[in-house]
């Protein structure tokens, strides 16, 4: 256990833990868009910047992304100084120039008092902030179906050669965890469309409710040893089946003399 000072308060932390984890545990409101516990920290969105200093630094300060900075004994951390608020305002101002119509960015910017970007808006804005969370989650799950392509102004998230991605299984992890809901998908009946590829959804054998995609179920049974017939029913039908089976056992055990 080590001790750090956050906004003048002494706080205990574990060695090697990232600063953002400590701040979140202390319920300090630090905005972070590209952070997810499932993947390694990346430091793309820059909103979780905090000010650190030490006693022996003679008043020198440093601004670091708290998601990437491991805590160390004796750190003195400030999270809401004037400089930091100004910095976050500038970053959000830049985000607004890139994504002027994104509700998540607009809300966050409004919290910091930025309602209109002071920069020139990009010509054809979209909702992507290029934080790379989708590609990191896709890599972590072992598919690596999408990645960031091109550099500079042309940088975007896309499947290989912008064709239907062959490695995608349609699990929706990228779309559901996107901080700005940029990644669009369509579930119509028993088909799911994402990244320009169409998937067939498995259906529950009893009620006909769609479940996960056929490709995802095949991946799970091949690589994770889940029997294929587990995917024939959805969770509700599985529960009903369990109740019927346990009911049979209960009646049977009552009839059999103890």
């Amino acid at each position: 256990m080590i001790t750090v000072t956050i906004n003048g308060k002494l706080v205990r932390a574990k060695e090697g833990e990232m600063l953002l984890a400590v701040l979140r545990r202390e319920k300090i409101d630090i905005p972070a868009l590209c952070h997810h516990e499932a993947v390694e920290p990346y430091g793309a969105c820059r909103l979780c910047m905090v000010e650190i200093t030490r006693k022996e630094w003679d008043g020198w300060k440093n601004m670091v992304t708290s998601c990437l900075y491991p805590v160390a004994d004796g750190l003195i951390i400030q999270t809401h100084t004037t400089d930091l608020i100004e910095l976050r305002k500038t970053i959000l101002d830049l985000y607004l120039a890139r994504c002027p119509n994104t509700p998540e960015i607009q809300d966050l910017a409004a919290q910091y008092g930025v309602n209109q970007t002071s920069y020139e808006q990009v010509a054809d804005p979209n909702d992507c902030i290029l934080c790379g969370l989708c590609t990191r989650i896709c890599d972590r799950m072992g598919f690596s179906a999408i990645s960031a392509v091109n550099r500079g102004h042309g940088r975007e998230i896309a499947p290989p050669l912008k064709n239907a991605p062959p490695d995608c299984v349609g699990c929706l992890a990228c779309a559901l965890n996107c901080p700005t809901n940029y990644i669009k998908f369509k579930d119509i009946g028993y088909t799911r469309e994402i990244w320009g590829r169409k998937f067939e959804l498995l259906r529950d054998a009893k009620t006909g409710q769609p479940t996960i995609t056929k490709e995802f179920a095949e991946y799970l049974s091949k690589h994770r040893n889940i029997p294929q017939d587990y995917f024939e029913l959805n969770d509700e039908s599985h529960r009903k089946e369990t109740a019927l089976n346990l009911g049979k056992i209960a009646i049977w055990s009552r009839e059999v003399p103890q």
Binding site: A38, C171, L172, L220
Partner: peptide
């Protein structure tokens, strides 16, 4: 389930043969 790590891919919901992992 650690809700901070979960990415809501629904693999466990589909895989549990007793239907006890749910959304």
């Amino acid at each position: 389930i650690n809700p901070e790590i979960c990415v809501r891919c629904m693999a466990c919901v589909a895989a549990c043969p007793f239907g006890c992992s749910l959304f």
